[in-house]
Simulated assay, not measured.
Amino acid sequence: MVVDLAELSFCDSAGLNALIQAHRIAAGHGKRLTLSSPQTQTLRLLKMTGADALFPITDT
């Protein structure tokens, strides 16, 4: 499954929590959640929290 984040300009802890919860649900069904085109702020949040290790990240 791919979540397109190209238009997401801000993500806080609630948004991060939603992505992590979606990751857990997908993993529970044997699926992977991929993040597509996250903007700089979202990438920074993912890296600062270590959550970038949970998600494959693509540019498209």
Rank of each mutant, 00 (worst) to 15 (best):
D4I: 11
V3K: 02
I57W: 07
N17T: 12
I20L: 06
T34S: 05
T34C: 04
Q21L: 04
S37V: 13
R24N: 14
S36W: 06
N17M: 03
T60H: 02
L5A: 00
L54I: 01
F55S: 06
M1I: 01
T42P: 04
K47A: 14
S36E: 03
N17G: 12
G30D: 02
C11E: 09
G28V: 00
A53P: 05
K47D: 09
M1W: 08
S9C: 11
V2W: 00
P56G: 09
C11H: 04
D12Q: 06
A27G: 05
A14G: 11
I20M: 02
E7P: 14
A27W: 01
L46I: 10
H29W: 02
K47C: 12
Q21T: 08
A26W: 07
R44S: 12
A26Y: 10
D12R: 04
T58R: 02
K47E: 15
D4S: 04
V3A: 09
D52E: 15
G50K: 07
A26E: 10
R44I: 10
V2S: 02
A18G: 01
T34D: 00
E7T: 14
T42M: 13
L45N: 14
G30P: 07
L5I: 13
S13V: 11
F10K: 08
R44T: 12
L46T: 05
S36M: 08
A14V: 13
S9G: 07
I57P: 08
E7R: 15
G30A: 03
T34R: 07
C11I: 11
I20V: 12
I57K: 03
P38C: 11
E7D: 11
F55C: 08
M48F: 12
R32W: 03
E7C: 11
N17C: 10
A14H: 13
R44N: 12
A27D: 07
A53H: 14
F10C: 11
D59R: 11
Q39P: 14
Q41Y: 07
P56A: 14
A14M: 12
A51G: 13
L5E: 01
V3N: 00
